[in-house]
Write a protein that binds this DNA or RNA. Structure first.
Lengths: 324, 324
DNA sequence: ACTGTTTCTGGGAGCGTTCCCAGAACGCCG
DNA sequence: CGGCGTTCTGGGAACGCTCCCAGAAACAGT
């Protein structure tokens, strides 16, 4: 393993000072074309890669952002939503900064984050009134939250338009003639759960909206919720499920109890994340775009740009397949 | 944002030199209990966190490892397998080192990796004869591969016992009286695909083993493969699918073509990663353990431990549910 | 020509650690 | 009591960059 070239070697080969090399590398102004070209040539010739550690140390900038999964159980990782999100984040980063992954065990995470190891944090899957947010804000660390936070004042966030999506899905169920429409809602301590439930409620206004059971965004939770719903009203003929992954569980229960889908019961999910039998009608959200937005917003914040939107709401669209 | 304390402040408060502080932080030998206690107290009092950048720079160690997804498309990310893997990796890391995520766009990744920014790399989802491995080895970067690499000589790897798992699944289909047993295999350029196919072949020895179609580890691929299989032999009565995610696609096609599962066609998947209708019989692999093993192995390698096993094969187990 | 302004350039002081080396303190043995 | 090993400690030179400052060069305007 031959030692890697340093900036001074590049400087010597290019016949300039290391200051100039540094300027070229950071595309700073006030560099002659001649010097720029010479440096670039030297960089290629020596196969030079700047040392990140030295850069961070001298530049007071970590060149890394954290993706924090605020979920001790690590449940999120199994969620296809998360996979797409990460793809988006990564795409937007485009090698500019490193992505450090963290799963939140309350204490240590904030210590690490405020320790100056990252320039900013993407916080995802926040439950209830997590203190993490306020801690980070107090320390002045740029933060963008994925999914509307339930507390935390003025933190910028990116979210899908859960309310409208849920509303449209439910409207579709109503207009296709369903009479007893239930919902398997998300956790009551997450905005995604609450907002989708609110959308369902809005669409149901004027009808009996009592068939509500909360799930936990897992297929097991979805199954349990479906069973509970069926016990409560064996005659229900439609269900809006706040997540595809829960819909999968619901589908299993419906099948086991001899209900045909969509014959006896229509099902609409949310996310457009999983293939199912029968193919699931669902509310589609572009998770990759979600991830890109999140990242773009954070990087802009880190760069100190002005006039940024406090938050962004991404549109959703109803995708009709077989299940409803 | 008040400036963070440095090592010398800790030293001053503790009444020792920064060398001693450093020794305590790295739990190096030759430090008196007295000094150790004083330093620890000072650290707590000042809420001191060592600066990673400075550490890496001075210590010639990045304190980070890379998780490389050797898949330009980013397909892996949607795979539940990957989610579990990452959970395992993260658990094993336990805050000791950072995890940097990378998706392989052939060129840049190896440049970055050999640039000294990480102490080692976990390479996952390798296709065919990826040159990445040899590049890394030439540069002396510790590497552990997830899933047996098709080329690359003596790289240590961790893998599930795909062969045995597939064999057992197929044996089960045979012993339960199925006559025409097909398989949807994985990609022909990945060991996971090849080994599972080999297991199926071994179990099928003595019977006609011609119903083979390759999929690409996506549900769409699984659907296409199932359709092709059905066209080739409408009377097939069982199929071993090399990945649950493909099985989902296959299930959709079977359903669409009026085949009941398991009545007309028995289905066994691989991974135990997705809920389905009907619940899928599958070959279970402990992906979290997989991730932990992978990481443990790499860290051991990085630490220069001796006598490490060249590779590890994790057992699989057949989980029987409804589909077969 | 003389000063001012702008573009370019190099020198060198940090950044916060680790690691090496040399020295202090403390035994213990002859 | 002198010498020698062993444990402990502090000083200071790296590590490879960025950033500040001051000087050189180029080009104006008077």
């Amino acid at each position: 393993m031959n030692r890697r070239a340093g900036i001074d070697e590049v400087a010597r080969l290019a016949g300039v000072s290391k200051s100039t090399v540094s300027r070229v590398l950071n595309s700073a102004p006030h560099v002659s074309e001649r010097a720029k070209a010479a440096v670039k040539r030297a960089v290629v010739q020596l196969d030079y890669t700047p040392n990140q550690a030295a850069r961070s140390l001298a530049g007071h900038r970590a060149n890394a952002i954290a993706l924090v999964l605020s979920e001790p159980s690590g449940r999120v990782l199994s969620d296809p939503f998360f996979a797409g999100l990460m793809r988006g984040v990564h795409a937007e980063l485009a090698g500019r900064t490193q992505l450090v992954l963290m799963m939140s065990q309350p204490g240590d995470v904030s210590a690490y984050l405020t320790g100056g190891h990252v320039d900013g944090a993407l916080v995802v899957s926040l439950h209830g009134h997590d203190p993490l947010l306020s801690v980070l804000q107090e320390n002045g660390l740029p933060v963008v939250v994925g999914g509307r936070p339930l507390s935390g004042g003025a933190v910028p966030f990116v979210d899908s338009d859960n309310f409208t999506g849920a509303q449209e899905a439910t409207k579709h169920l109503i207009s296709s003639g369903r009479r007893r429409i239930a919902t398997i809602a998300g956790p009551a301590d997450m905005a995604a759960g609450l907002d989708r439930l609110a959308g369902w409620r809005r669409a149901m206004s004027g009808r009996a909206a009592d068939l509500v059971v909360h799930g936990d965004f897992t297929s097991e939770g979805g199954a349990a919720a479906m069973a509970a719903l069926l016990d409560r009203d064996p005659a229900l003929d439609a269900v809006f499920v706040a997540a595809d992954i829960m819909a999968l569980g619901a589908l299993q229960v419906l099948h086991a109890r001899g209900r045909s889908v969509p014959g006896d019961v229509a099902v609409i999910g949310f996310d457009d994340s999983v293939p199912a039998v029968p193919p699931l009608s669902t509310v589609r959200q572009d998770v990759e775009k979600f991830g890109r937005m999140l990242t773009w917003r954070l990087l802009a914040e880190v760069d100190g740009e002005e006039g940024l939107p406090p938050s962004v709401l991404l549109p959703t669209s109803l995708v009709l397949r077989t299940s409803a």
